[in-house]
């Protein structure tokens, strides 16, 4: 993969993706986490425009469908690493055709520019877009130190793909493939049509204890509620809709709290905790609590290592 500037890794989180949409200037959408495919009817607002599926990528994974040459699909291939979250969401957004959804100038510009190109060149254009990269990188975790730290879990091999209904078929848009993959035929609800394909995948990954995560792009709830409130207030000349107005205000406040929570989490994601941690270590040292805490942490680590060694030993026997 070529290196067109640096793209940071993105966490698969509804708050991150919702704020990313805002950053692009998209109006009318939000991103929700989908915990269970069986209950999508009750947990998600309609229509569900598309799904973003995160999983650990393994070489040689067979696609669950057949490549499609449907020319009505906007599909960009992924040409750089780490951009797959943005790639997945943009591949979806490019295919949404709904007057309720506004793409905003950044994405409209990209679409108009890239529309006539082949998938690889579209990917190239995407990776060269400074505006898109800036929004993507606004979710960068601060590097605490300019060192190559290989700690914790590696996220390198996590991959995002998109599922989207177009016409009477469900397609999987995976930037690492040559073409869109036709996954299922839609009879009534496209979510019902895509469920078996995703479940099959989830099952495969669950057996290997591999993490995955499913996000849904749905109508922006707050925007909808505000529109409802406005028409309710206009019709409420005789105060006979006071209860509804009250209810709507409560729901809007609930949405505001959720948005606020997202903002908090994103502020923490972007925060450089290093000065805080150093200061915390100092105050713990001053109070004589640092050595006991470190002692405990070291003993716990030894215990864990011991248990693991014992377990390995038992396995060998």
């Amino acid at each position: 993969m070529s290196d067109a500037g640096n793209w940071c890794l993105i966490e698969s989180d509804p708050g991150v993706f919702t704020e990313m949409l805002q950053g692009f200037g998209v109006k009318g959408l939000q991103v929700d986490e989908l915990y269970s495919l069986e209950h999508h009817e009750t947990t998600l607002a309609k229509p569900v425009y598309g799904l973003v599926f995160l999983f650990k990528w393994r070489p040689g994974d067979e696609p669950c469908g057949v490549p499609s040459n449907n020319g009505n699909i906007f599909f960009a291939q992924q040409v750089i690493q780490n951009a797959c979250a943005t790639q997945a969401i943009i591949n979806m957004l490019m295919n949404i055709d709904d007057p309720e959804v506004e793409l905003g100038s950044i994405l409209k510009e990209y679409k108009e520019f890239a529309l006539d190109f082949d998938p690889a060149t579209r990917g190239e254009c995407l990776s060269n877009s400074d505006k898109i990269r800036t929004v993507h990188n606004s979710f960068a975790r601060p590097t605490l130190y300019e060192l190559d730290i290989k700690g914790g879990k590696s996220e390198d091999n996590y991959h995002f793909v998109t599922y989207i209904p177009i016409g009477n078929k469900v397609y999987e848009l995976d930037g690492l493939r040559e073409a869109p993959i036709e996954v299922a035929e839609i009879e009534e609800d496209w979510m019902d049509a895509v469920t078996p394909a995703i479940q099959k995948r989830i099952q495969k990954y669950s057996e290997g204890e591999i993490h995955f995560n499913l996000l849904a792009v749905v109508p922006n709830r707050k925007q909808k509620l505000e529109e409802m409130l406005k028409s309710c207030q206009e019709a409420n000349v005789n105060h006979d809709l006071d209860d509804q107005v009250h209810e709507l205000n409560i729901e809007i406040a609930r949405e505001d709290r959720r948005i606020q929570q997202y903002q908090k989490e994103n502020a923490r994601r972007r925060h450089n905790y290093l000065p805080f941690v150093v200061e915390l270590l100092k105050v713990l040292a001053k109070e004589g609590k640092l050595i006991p805490l470190f002692d405990k942490a070291i003993n716990q680590a030894k215990e864990r290592a011991g248990q693991k060694a014992l377990l390995d030993l038992k396995r060998k026997q």
């Binding site: 923490r268 972007r270 805080f276 200061e279 915390l280």
Partner: peptide, 11 residues
Amino acid sequence: SLSPHLPETGN
């Protein structure tokens, strides 16, 4: 001594 190093969350 710690407050100046906190993330700005509105809290």
